[in-house]
Design a protein around this nucleic acid. Structure first.
Lengths: 194, 194
DNA sequence: AATAACTTTTGCCATTTGGCAAATAATGAA
DNA sequence: TTCATTATTTGCCAAATGGCAAAAGTTATT
């Protein structure tokens, strides 16, 4: 007996980027593993779980690193209905200095490296779909980051609220501040001033 | 008689991302068009030249847009030995609000859309190579932009100098300032303070 | 309910950056 | 060379942000 899991969100997401027949969809579903993480858990970190790709059904991730001054920087957030792309997997020689953490409780659909290789070999459109997804995710990141540099702190916060109306209140102030490139106290004051 | 153009930089660049035999290399060379732009010329702008992909043999591009306040923002620079990726070509429905300008005199190798389609259909590795190049370029952009947010203006400038030691003195102050997200006068003062 | 641990707000002041306009320097064209 | 144009620097002051530490507020645990 197979446990019934719809994975609708994932399949619909993939179908935005290419066509798949029912047989292929079923194969994809079989290659996916359900994973739940609690708030604060690490998805990717020293050894624990090998680098894999996760589709976030519910919850928020953040991708972080420590800069040269030792401050923890939140590079970006990844929310529902998106893949957590390991941005450095293209740079495979250098071990990633980044880690990925669940900001809220998360429900994930995880592809292992083997599954990905298998799907790539079996489904002719797979690589194309994954490439489109990756590129779109990266372009979005650039398009989010770039205008932030020209904005002052308040505008950055307001833009963030506009783009992610339902994210700000689920993220600790400190994470958001480090993403926006301002201090906690400044963000607190900015929030007050609105 | 064929004009002899080596295109070494381009070919070597492509070979970093995948293997190509001599026949394929010759085909690629035939599909490429040499284009020279003068400082200040636009590579991509309202209609003039249809969106194409350029490999920069010599010179510097900048990709710009106007933000909601009407300020001209330099989103990023593209320098020698890189492709000028039209970041919004993946978003084809929306006409790009960005334009691409030569910051210095430039020597380019240009692929038209037809050439790209043709190469894609003829050379089996082509799409894979292009995807790798695109992803690498985008990842680099994210990795450059992200830390800038956490830095103050002076540090941003110093980081820029470190990463592009031979770029700063070839770019007008105003372009660099808008890339760094600071005003001209601030950048001028910062430069003085060093 | 009480405690501890953590998160957010606040106060105080120094520093950084911006806005604006004028002065100076550099560049290009005649 | 000289003039016009453009780019850069500077002065002045206001506004924004940071640094640090204490206070207030939250949350989780016992």
């Amino acid at each position: 007996m197979t446990i019934f899991v719809t994975m609708d969100k994932l399949i619909n997401y993939l179908l935005e980027f290419g066509q798949l027949n029912q047989q292929q969809i079923d194969l994809i579903k079989r290659k996916v593993q359900v994973l739940e993480l609690k708030k604060g858990d690490y998805f990717s970190e020293a050894g624990k779980i090998p680098k894999q790709v996760a589709f976030i059904e519910e919850g928020i991730f953040r991708v972080c690193y420590y800069n040269s001054e030792g401050d923890e920087i939140t590079k970006y957030f990844v929310d529902e209905n998106n893949f957590a792309v390991d941005i450095n997997s293209f740079n495979q020689k250098i071990p990633s200095s980044e880690y990925v953490q669940a900001v809220t409780d998360c429900k994930l659909l995880v592809f292992s490296t083997e599954s990905l290789n298998n799907l790539s070999a079996t489904i002719i459109q797979w690589d194309g779909i994954i490439n489109k997804i990756t590129e779109k995710a990266l372009v979005e990141k650039v398009n989010k980051l770039s205008p932030m540099l020209a904005e002052d702190a308040k505008t950055r916060y307001l833009s963030f609220l506009e783009k992610f109306p339902n994210l700000a209140n689920r993220i600790p102030l400190s994470y958001l501040a480090s993403y926006l490139g301002i201090t906690q106290s400044s963000l607190s004051r900015i929030r007050k001033s609105i």
